[in-house]
Design a protein around this nucleic acid. Sequence first.
DNA 1: TTGAAAAGCTGACAATTATCATATCTATGT
DNA 2: ACATAGATATGATAATTGTCAGCTTTTCAA
Lengths: 234, 234
Amino acid sequence: MDKEENDSRCEQCIIRQFNALRAMSKEELKKVSDSKITRKIKKGESIFEEGEKLNGVFCVRNGVSKLSKLSANGKDQIVKLATKGEVMGQRSIIAEEHSNLSAVAVNDMEVCYIPKESIVHTLKSNPDFAVEVLRHMAHDLREADDVIVNMSQKTVKQRVAEAFLYLKNNFGEDKDGFLALTLSREDIANVVGTATESCIRIISEFRKKGFLKTSGKRIGIADERKLQDLVEGF
Amino acid sequence: MDKEENDSRCEQCIIRQFNALRAMSKEELKKVSDSKITRKIKKGESIFEEGEKLNGVFCVRNGVSKLSKLSANGKDQIVKLATKGEVMGQRSIIAEEHSNLSAVAVNDMEVCYIPKESIVHTLKSNPDFAVEVLRHMAHDLREADDVIVNMSQKTVKQRVAEAFLYLKNNFGEDKDGFLALTLSREDIANVVGTATESCIRIISEFRKKGFLKTSGKRIGIADERKLQDLVEGF
DNA sequence: TTGAAAAGCTGACAATTATCATATCTATGT
DNA sequence: ACATAGATATGATAATTGTCAGCTTTTCAA
């Protein structure tokens, strides 16, 4: 077994520590490992579409994917950004529904596709795994509740500020102090739930006020405190 | 055993068919039944508060409860209306977090308080139960995603219209054609995520246009089709 | 390298929604 | 029945946000 292949075995995968797969037994993990397919996905490529019937879940090894839902007026609302270690599509598999979200790569990605059989089987036979999945879903649900409140009770400006703090906390910064995850202005608008132009305008305003710095499409946080204050309502 | 007591045993409880408790074995159910406490709660009374540490879950036998979260600007956002058969507080128990929501009775209620021990124990020993809980949570999560999209992409008018259709579909109408669940205008505004005055204004507008009929605080749907069209964006 | 095409930016204006003030109604307990 | 607090209603106005149009910059592939 060469090193390359070794790296790709779930048993060795570090990513697993961050998701529910860590509750699987050695044997279960081996089954998953044998049935999974690792795929490289290029920036902008689609992983699955809203309404599609999923026959497995996707475990993100590298890169970031946006999970979004198309609204009646033709705009995408980004509901979640899934990164290293996160599992996409599990909600649909568990509820036995078609996917309610689309997944598109925000940058180049590597994902493992795990057919649902091994997941469903383990769910039914290993309560620890089921509880672990449950815990993750409980966490997602809490986050969703928080987003609902933010959407309805905060201004667009506050939500934009919050989005940048979120990006910094979850994806970090590069050596020049720019956000490590570069999203288009349109994507940011779709996370925040506003018009692209409004989003751009607010970014400009924040730049002029010294809260942010920009360089092309790259954005960096210049005054985290001020942004935080704004989110809190000052 | 008198009839009263018989009715209150979980094994006989019809409500159970609507939630995850149906996946419990006879013995598990008996334990739950022995440890649970049935409580009557009056309209407006609080069941639990945001930030409170819950030591059990609440199963709704009768009546309706609003689950809400206080926002920074002092307004409540109602995230969910829990009715007969629904279980409240399970998310917090599973995630082992303090509650992220408050629960207040919208009308007179009867709820069963089930200490977390029997729930947690069954989760870990009965995979069918865990999967059933998971399924319910997956469903809640999907609904939450939908709410996020509605909040950010629909106008207040559309969301008000949608709220009334939701109330009709989930709680029905009385013999006079008014919604069976009567919420205050403020509560409706808090579901929709808008100012109470805006909500009232829109209700007046809908009444004048013949979409709704009102009688005091009672509201009835007069033209479901028109409301539906409005939601769809026509 | 270069020339579309896409993304970013800004102004002008319109539409939506919130806020404040005030008036009227109505449900509820005594 | 009646007082009254709380809920509902409406006007006036301000603030926020969206839309459309046109321009500039950046990106990316030929």
